[in-house]
Design a protein around this nucleic acid. Structure first.
Length: 430
RNA sequence: UCCUCGGUAGCUCAAUCGGCAGAGCGGGUGGCUGUUAACCACUAGGUUGCAGGUUCGAGUCCUGCCCGAGGAGCCA
């Protein structure tokens, strides 16, 4: 008998098939038994009918518990009353294991309990839907960059030096020297961009910040493109196109999952180019008018990010930040040297920053001066400065946080459900 | 690191002024011919986070600690 996946049963109506999976739930009503089976691709309702109280299949059914593993065989039919529209008339149940006392029931549970059982929580419908959206976003990102001639150039996770201070870096041993877990692939991207023109890296990054908020993870995934000879304007255009492409793909391919999440897709469908643009100066003025207490020179706090993204019905780009609050490598604005050519994209619906990037310094003397001003160890940056010695080139790039993007698209209250095993402040189990 | 809130059955929660620790779900048993987190009846299930204190009496009040959640700060 043919083994089929639940997502494909529509192609097997009228045929005898085999489904391998786990018991999601079961119900019974007199001489009818309903068995909900999941196999990772979906859930299907199986039925058993008999007027005989001691029907052998009933006895097997009665032994089954939530999450017991099994193989069920039977005929697929269309059935309006069944969830999903298709049903399996069960003729045989082969039990692999009866699961005893599965901790997650179909009722409500608290966040701490579910986080403690994350390895099992992944099987729940909502978590399944979120992670389906995540894989679609990843696919869309790779498709976007690969389709535009970008070269995937993965950057190292173990790095030799602290980019800017060690407080936000995880330190580890690298034989007889210290190493740090990468918090961004950007500096290496700049090197590969000189070799390949258009590059991107996509992988996990690590921040040892003691952040305990709904938008921070200790380990998260970031996709970072870097483009040789691109300006701030070019990179803003690229960021817009990337976000639009991701949204378009998810709306096209994962409508069902968004429905399970009860995500109203109308706000996503409305998003189009161009995104509103504000300079830092304009943003501060606007935020003050809307009641923010922020003063010029501050970076945006969580309330400001939220407020900004609520004012507009699509992502907003903020540019031209004061140099003092940004990284050492940011290219100054030629007209206002106290500002830098950086850009942050704030997602809509209160989700805050999802992209940060800008144009990098390509002038050798200026970069050397900045490294000094920021008190960075000169030797550690020799290779990076080399990029300005041997055919320096204006270039720009950005980083997009995968989990924040997924949280926004799914409209989740917390980022922790957007990655299979979130690493959070003081939580590394399971 | 700081502020706020919380920890009671396997899970989610209740317990009036400090006075007999209780319900739903899940488990078990039985019933029901189309269920949709099915439903109905019965049933088992407790070191009230830990340590101390006040009191005739503490789940409840006080002190300390542990754990968690929300927020702030931090945050290329």
């Amino acid at each position: 008998m043919k083994w089929v996946y639940i997502e494909d049963v529509k192609d097997y109506v009228g045929q005898e098939v085999e489904i391998r999976g786990w018991v999601y739930n079961k119900r019974s009503s007199g001489r009818v038994r309903f068995l909900l089976v999941r196999d990772g691709t979906g859930i299907i309702q199986g039925t058993i009918f008999s007027t005989d109280k001691d029907f052998p299949l009933f006895r097997v059914f009665d032994e089954l518990t939530q999450e017991s593993s099994l193989i069920v065989r039977g005929k697929i039919k269309e059935e309006r009353r069944a969830p999903g529209g298709f049903e399996l008339e069960i003729s045989e149940i082969e039990v692999i294991q009866i699961a005893r006392d599965y901790p997650i029931t179909p009722k409500e549970h608290s966040v701490p309990f579910l986080m403690e059982h994350r390895h099992l929580w992944l099987r729940s419908q909502k978590q399944h839907a979120i992670l389906q959206v995540r894989t679609e976003v990843v696919r869309a990102i790779r498709e976007f960059f690969d389709g535009r001639g970008f070269r995937l150039m993965d950057t190292p996770i173990l790095t030799p030096s602290a980019c800017e201070g060690t407080t936000t870096l995880f330190e580890t041993q690298y034989f007889d020297q210290k190493a740090y877990l990468s918090q961004s692939g950007q500096l290496y991207n700049e090197a590969t961009a000189a070799a390949f023109g258009k590059v991107y890296c996509f992988g996990p990054v690590f921040r040892a910040e003691k952040s305990k908020t709904r938008r921070h993870l200790i380990e998260f995934w970031m996709v970072e493109p870097e483009v040789a000879f691109a300006t701030l304007e070019d990179i803003i255009e690229l960021g817009q196109d990337l976000i639009l492409h991701i949204i378009e793909r998810v709306l096209e391919k994962r409508k069902q999952d968004l429905e399970i999440l009860e995500r109203d897709t109308a706000p996503l469908e409305r998003i189009s180019k161009p995104f509103p643009r504000l300079t830092y100066d304009q943003a501060v003025k606007l935020l003050t008018e809307h009641g923010s207490k922020m003063v010029y020179g501050d970076d945006f706090g969580a309330p400001e990010e939220t407020l900004l993204s609520q004012i507009y019905d699509r992502p907003v780009c903020i540019t031209h930040f004061p140099a003092a609050i940004k990284a050492f490598y940011m290219q100054p604005d030629p007209e206002r040297p106290d500002l830098v050519l950086g850009v942050d994209f704030m997602a809509s619906e209160g989700y805050g920053e999802i992209i940060g990037g800008g144009q990098r310094i390509h002038d050798l003397e200026l970069l050397e001066r900045r490294i000094q001003e920021f008190n960075l160890p000169k030797e550690a940056y020799e290779w990076y400065v080399d990029l300005r010695r041997y055919g320096t080139f204006p270039h720009s790039g950005f980083g997009l946080g995968l989990e924040r993007t997924v949280a926004w698209i799914c409209k989740l209250p917390h980022i922790r459900e957007t990655i299979p095993f979130p690493r959070l402040l003081y939580r590394i189990y399971p």
